[in-house]
Structure formats: structure tokens, C-alpha cells
Nucleic acid binder design. Sequence first.
DNA 1: AAATCCATTTAGATCGATCCAAATGACGGA
DNA 2: TCCGTCATTTGGATCGATCTAAATGGATTT
Lengths: 339, 339
Amino acid sequence: MNQEKGSRVTLQQVADHAGVSRATASLIVRGSKLVADSTRKKVQESMNQLGYVYDRVAANLRSRNSSTVGLIITEIGNPFFSELLVGVHQVLDEEGYTVILGTTFESAEKQDQLISTMLEYRVGGAIVSPASGSAADTLNRLRQWDIPVVLVTKEPPHANTDYVGIDNVLGGKIAAEHLIAKGHRRIAFLGGPSESSARLDRQQGYMDALQQAGIGYDESLILTSAASRQGGREVVQQILKHTNPPTAAFCYNDIVAFGVMLGLKEAGLVPGRDFAVVGYDNIEESAFTDPGLTTVMASPMLVGTNAANLLHHRITSKTVDEEPQRIILKPELVIRGSS
Amino acid sequence: MNQEKGSRVTLQQVADHAGVSRATASLIVRGSKLVADSTRKKVQESMNQLGYVYDRVAANLRSRNSSTVGLIITEIGNPFFSELLVGVHQVLDEEGYTVILGTTFESAEKQDQLISTMLEYRVGGAIVSPASGSAADTLNRLRQWDIPVVLVTKEPPHANTDYVGIDNVLGGKIAAEHLIAKGHRRIAFLGGPSESSARLDRQQGYMDALQQAGIGYDESLILTSAASRQGGREVVQQILKHTNPPTAAFCYNDIVAFGVMLGLKEAGLVPGRDFAVVGYDNIEESAFTDPGLTTVMASPMLVGTNAANLLHHRITSKTVDEEPQRIILKPELVIRGSS
DNA sequence: AAATCCATTTAGATCGATCCAAATGACGGA
DNA sequence: TCCGTCATTTGGATCGATCTAAATGGATTT
């Protein structure tokens, strides 16, 4: 405990203090069972006395393996991602990785920057939720260096990479089917950024359901917006001015749905009675709104744990050239008061 | 661009390719103006051709300075922290740092673990929101190694460290004064973990205001809970059973306040009409509830940017022994429909 | 022509660990 | 006593960069 301020205690110093070689001390910090119990005890005693702190940076440099992984998401403000992040941490902390977090705010340029940073830090792998406009090329920069990448939530075309996501077509479909079963015939699809593959898939499922029910879809009831509360609020104000307004809406995600419900209240309508609303994601908050939000459960945390497990597998088994894996989680409908 | 898969291009290889020494190449990647323009161009050309990627890990090892900083928070789920995180990133990304994030979930043990990890990764500094039960000792482990630490939001007793926070006493006071001015006489203080210094300060301000107004406080109207929606919901159910129930509540934070508003609705009361609610933090969502939440604006992002700036200052100016600085932001009341 | 200066470049040691192949030494068997 | 075996320990090279102090060489001064 009595070290010089600011200067680290090195393994060499520990070894000298304990009267063994640096190599032996190194074996001990790595928990090797090659060393005799008596020496192990002696060295550990010295480590405590000197206040030794393992230098993972130096170790990683020599051993050519990294104990850090990158996590790139598009938005921290969205609880979907904070829950996903919890899932990722849960698995990776356990396995001894340290996570470097980056947020792109949906900018492809920022995403590129972040990938450069992660390369410079020698991350062992990365979990990436690609920014909407970004091409597969960017991601290949990582794979080019044999760094495993797992994509989550969105998949740019031609990205030949591991992917963990949600069956968005199915999700859109069960949402729309639910509203149809409730007797609605004019159902809007509201919000979300137009370029997002996730949004397009949900829209596809929504349209499929309407077609199959023999209703057909009305292009004028499909509107995009920012994926925010404010976006939802604006887009519902707009749809209510429609000459033949809908009686229900399926929203891009829960956040948009909250905005939609707020917009409805502001227009004097009661969500769940005068107008049905269905969201997507089932973030924690959805159970606590008034009325509770009917939504498609996307289990962000499960996406996170799956992605983390897959990445860990790739990193340890060095099988980057193996066939890419796709894990598609099946969404389920959670019915609450809003529909 | 034609490198062996998996093996990095080193500065040595770049230097050989360009016909200069490793040292010169090193000067160039660091942007030194000592080198001639002609050589710089030549070497940069080689870097592009070979696809060189700077190895920040090796560089940090030799130069004994770190370009990473640790950020330890208690909860990612709470938007207060995700907004704070955005603020921190905003400043530190700009300055060229990389952030390692850790979440304690309010566990002192986990916090200890995270600090160990950050030490092992040679972070240049850390921003920490201490877990409620944690002592100052833990933090001193970082300072012992001359690693600057900036505390945010909470301050354990005897932590002789830089601190950025909000004037919680004042915040509690203006919240209570607002409710008193609205004519309320029985005002509850609801939710939050009992050990938290932030909570105690807010409670202090609340009690001060009541005393000064000649009302005095009633211990039975002060209740703790988990700092979650569910916590707020439960605690309001409880307080409504009081023999002489309050007509207004000041809540530990916005999240608790949302739970309180939900609980009121479930009990058939309309927040803002039958019962006034005031929150704390002014997270984004507070403007989008029904009714909008009156709350004490704590500007989490501003806390983040201030903490990041202060930390950057400490890291660069090597003045760890300088008098600790305390930045206390003044909160303001944001009045909306809930009161 | 020699000395001085300045701008640029460089060799060799170093950061703190791991890897490898080889050394050490105790022990049992021939 | 000598040797092979096995468990343990070790020195020296190495990861990919930076640091230091010194070398290089052309221009300018004396």
C-alpha cells in the first residue's frame, strides 16, 4: 500500500520482492496451475503488500488478444437501446470483457469515426446497430481485420454478417391482425424513419395482414416521422385531419406511440376508447402509461444477450470464416388498455 | 489495402515501405511539425497503401498517458443518466477520449469491481456517480494512483474530490414553495432510496420551505420507495390510505412522479386537478406526459458536460493536488399541468 | 576553409506484460 | 551412483509504439 504516487507497481517489482522471476509472477496473475502452491502464496502476499494492479493494456499488447468489445448504437435516449445495453453488459461482464460504447445518433459519418476508434483500441469484436443510411462497406472495415461483428436490430443490404434481430415482418403482422380482430378497418401505420429496414419490414407485415383480411392498404394512412415522442405527436395531428381518418394506428415503436397517445388526448380523444393504439418494443415504460400500451414485445434485453453470446462465441472460437448466423427472435403481442 | 487478414500493419512496416525510420513515421502519426512536408506526404502515401491502423494501446503503454476515461453510473434505465451520458460524450469525444462505461445498479460491490477494471485499463480519469451505500474509501483507490476523479449527482461524506451536482436543497425548496403558493397545506415527499444523499438534501429543502411557511412538516407524509415507476405507484397507493391524506406531492424524481401520477389515475384521481404532483430532473419525457409534469429542472446533460470539462482539465493540467472544485448547478422550476 | 547553426532524421532503449524453449532440481528405479 | 521423469521455474526475445540524445547535412557566418 505504500507505493509512489502515480507510478505503477510492475510485475517485475512484485517478482523481486517475492524472490521469483517475472515469468513466474506472470503465471500466477493468470491463474496458471503450473506453479507450486507455496510460491503462489508468497507472490500473492507480495502483490498485496505492494498494491499491485494488473496492467491489462500491456498484457493485451503482448498476447495479441483483446478483452474489450465495441458496442455501437444509434441512440441512447431510446430505452430500447438502454435495455439492450443492459443485456449486452450482463453477458460480457460475466465473460470478463470491457465494453466501449459509442452512439452514432444515426449519422453514418459518426459511425465511421467510431469504427476507426474501435480499431485503434484493438477491440476483440463489436456489436453494431447500423445507422440508417450506412452501407455494408463500413462494417467490412472491421471484418477485414478479422474482428467479428454482430449486427443488431437493423441489417443493411448485402451485409454478410452475424445478425440478431426481431422478426419485424411477423411483428407488424400480429399488430395489424390484432387491430383487425378488434373490428378496425381503417388502420394507420405511423412514424419512424423512412430508410430504416426495421420500419420497412414492420410496414410489410402490416400490409400483408391487411391484404389477407381482404381490406387492402391505403397509402395515405402510412406516414413517417422522427422516432421520437414529438414525431408521434405531430404525425397523429396530421392523420386526424385526413378526410377519412383511421380509427386505429400501429406505431413504429413505443416512443412514437406515446407521442401518438399524447396527440390524441390533446385532440380530445381517449386512446383505447375512441382510437386504438399499438406500439412496438415493449419497453418498460409501456406498462406504466395511461392507458397501458398494447405493444409488440421485442425483448431488447434478449437481443442484447443473444448478440453478446454470439459475439463471445465468435471471438473465442476464431471461426470468422464460418457461415454467418442469423438469430431472429419471434415477437409476441402484449395486450393492454390502448386497444 | 492488401494486408494479411488478421495481422496488423505496424509503423515499422510503413517506415520500411516509405524508406524512413520508425521514429520519423511515429512523428508523423502524431502530427508533429518537425518533419519535412515531402517526407510527410511520402509516409502518408505508404500508410494508405498498406492500410495502416494506429495502435493506440501500444502508444499509450509507452507514453504513459491514457486516452480513455471511465464513466460509472448507477442506472442506465433512468433517462437522467442517459442524458448525462450524452453530455459527457459530447465533450470527451471532442477532446479525443474514449469512454468506458460501467453500471453499478447501486451495488457497492459492483462499483468496486468496476473501479478495479478501470485501473487495469489505465484510464486517465473517471466520472463516478457513487452507489448509495458506498464509502469514500473506494474512490480513493483511484486517487491513490493519481487518477483524477469527478463525482456527479451524489457525494459520499468525506469525499475530498471534485464534484459536479445540483443544489438539491434549493431544488427541494422551490418545489415545495411552489406547491405552498398554490395553496396546498398537506404536501407529501415521496419516493427514492433512503440512504441517498441527493434524496436527503431534497427532503431538507422541502422541510425548510414548509417550516418557513409556518406549516411544519409531518413525518408521516415522508415515504421512501424504489426510484422507479413501480416504486412511485406503490407509495402513492399507500399515502392515499392516510387518515389525513395530502393534496399534493413532491417526488424524489420524475420517474417516481410518473408512477405517482399513474397511481393517482388508478385511484380515480386526476393529477393536476385533484392532486398536485411535482417531479425532479426534467427529463425529456416530462414534457410529454398527460398532464405535463411540473418538475425541477436539473439539466442532466449540463451536469455531464461540466463534469467532463472539469475532468479534462484535471487530466491535462496534472494538478491533482490542487484544491477540489465543486460545481453546483442551480435548479429551476418548470411549471406544467400537473400542479 | 572551418565553424556554427538550424532543420530534419535516426538508432537504441523502453513501457509492462507474455511467449518460448530451455534450465533446474527432487525423486524413484536400474 | 547414475539416469530419466516430472513438476516447477526462468532468461531472453517480443508485442507496437514513444522517448532521448545524438547524428546528419545543407546553409550561413567568420
